[in-house]
Design a protein around this nucleic acid. Structure first.
Lengths: 155, 155
DNA sequence: TTGACATAGTTCGTTAGGCTAACTAATAAT
DNA sequence: ATTATTAGTTAGCCTAACGAACTATGTCAA
């Protein structure tokens, strides 16, 4: 056991490390979402809708198809989600001026506000946990987070 | 704006960074799990069932209620999931010898085998993604992963 | 000891969110 | 100009979640 850990230290990109890393990321992702779910529920917006809204806020206005792709969902599913978000005045559909078939979907001010409030609640929840970490640990998380995102966005 | 970024650089645990960090971790976790969902589908077992099975394999035989609690789900939901897993001979229900109302639910050998295969596939998919990263990126992820786990495991 | 209450699990009916297939409308291509 | 392709929607189905109501068993106190 200890010799394997020694190997790990010496070859940080080797099989053993990747195996362990994959496992840690997997369990970490599951645990993190479980803990954060509560905060999202408080927004009154369901997770799929909140997530779509988040994409619109951070990535900007876009077509239904690209939004569906970003969310890993098929167009009919996104169509329904958007219809519901629109009914709640959280997003807005406008015709694409360059393509009569297309739409430009954007977050409304209200949608943006609610989404950001939800993020604040998540943060508050995370902060409790972050308080147990050193600045060094937080810095390491911060350095890794963009890589995690990149990993997550490569399908 | 650039002055805010300067602040961020100087105080890596400040408000702005934590906001961004919370959001990145959130979206990263969602994207990561979405990406490896496919592996679960290959088992022929739905994610909730596979997850319940996983609890049974790793935490051992237990009552329906505790299983439901472990999965963050209500008893009726778990009751149905278990009925389906039982029909597929992946779990087994036996009466609780100490309580005539209760059940002891356990994974069968078949269930255990299939669950472990599924997990291997999931991790293999994650490892494939890791292969697309540079050694430096992997090192950063590796440095952060235990912190992520620590964060995730504090409910 | 027995009647009242509590608990474990199930059944029922509803809702949300995902899919595919089939449709309409607009654009692109031959 | 006709045909094929593409964007989005509608319809119909499935799974998984919930709460309410039910059954059966266990617990407790009068």
């Amino acid at each position: 056991m200890s010799s394997r850990f020694a190997d790990v230290k010496r070859t940080p990109s080797g099989e053993a490390v990747r195996h362990a890393l994959a496992d840690m990321l997997h369990r970490g992702a599951i645990g993190l979402l479980r803990g954060i779910k509560v905060a999202d529920q408080e927004t009154g917006i369901s997770p799929p809708r909140l997530s779509a809204l988040s994409v619109l806020v951070f990535a900007g206005p876009q077509s239904l198809a690209s939004l569906a792709a970003a969310e890993g969902v098929k167009p009919p599913t996104m169509s329904k989600l958007i219809a519901e978000l629109e009914a709640a005045s959280l997003v807005q559909k406008s015709p694409d001026p360059e393509d009569g078939r297309g739409l430009i979907i954007s977050a409304t001010t209200k949608g943006r506000k609610i989404m950001l409030q939800g993020r604040d609640r998540r943060l508050a929840l995370l902060r409790e946990r972050l308080d147990g970490l050193s600045q060094r640990e937080i810095a390491r998380l911060d350095a890794a987070a963009p890589i995690l995102l990149k990993l997550a966005q490569r399908p």
